[in-house]
């Protein structure tokens, strides 16, 4: 009898673990999550090891605007994420490094640039980025505590 009781308790426990894991997954995948950024490309807006709160609704609903800071998968390495500012939407005229002439952002793409334009590898290097690679939009900085600030308005 006790064996069944223990078995039932264990099953119940694992059920709860799975339930909460699934809820966590959905929250992080569909609503928002926390991201730690590193690298100099977004200085002085963001510094290394800042923790950012991001939301996933705007990219899903295609409501991105010029000036939003977004987290996207790197076009050359899908396992790596990049954090840049949108400076051009489809149809905008932008200027890259290579080829060094102005070009129009094609449909379904955005132009991403880091704020630290002298030390940032961004769209000027690898061209427009497909919107499908954008994962989330940065809402505010939550760490370090003395620099908590909203990052949605440009």
């Amino acid at each position: 009898m006790t064996i069944f009781k223990v078995l039932g308790k264990t099953c119940g426990f694992f059920g709860y673990v799975i339930q909460y894991a699934c809820i966590t997954h959905c929250t992080f995948e569909y609503i928002g999550d926390f991201v730690m950024c590193s690298g100099p490309s977004m200085e002085p807006t963001l510094e290394s090891n800042n923790i950012l709160l991001t939301e996933h609704l705007t990219p899903r609903l295609q409501r991105l605007r010029r000036g939003d800071i977004v987290i996207a998968k790197s076009p050359s390495n899908p396992k790596q994420n990049i954090c840049k500012r949108i400076t051009g939407l489809p149809g905008d005229k932008v200027k890259g490094h290579f080829p060094k002439r102005s070009q129009v952002v094609p449909r379904g793409h955005v132009w991403l640039e880091g704020d630290n334009s002298t030390n940032s590898s961004d769209s000027r290097l690898y061209g427009p980025v497909p919107q499908g690679l954008i994962r989330s939009r940065v809402v505010c900085r939550v760490w370090p505590l003395n620099k908590i600030s909203s990052l949605t308005e440009y």
Binding site: I18, Q19, A21, C22, I23, H25, C26, E29, Y30
Partner: peptide, 11 residues
């Protein structure tokens, strides 16, 4: 509780 489990499975 059911919807997140389903979504996670599909994902």
């Amino acid at each position: 509780f059911g919807v997140p489990i389903g979504l996670t499975f599909l994902d």
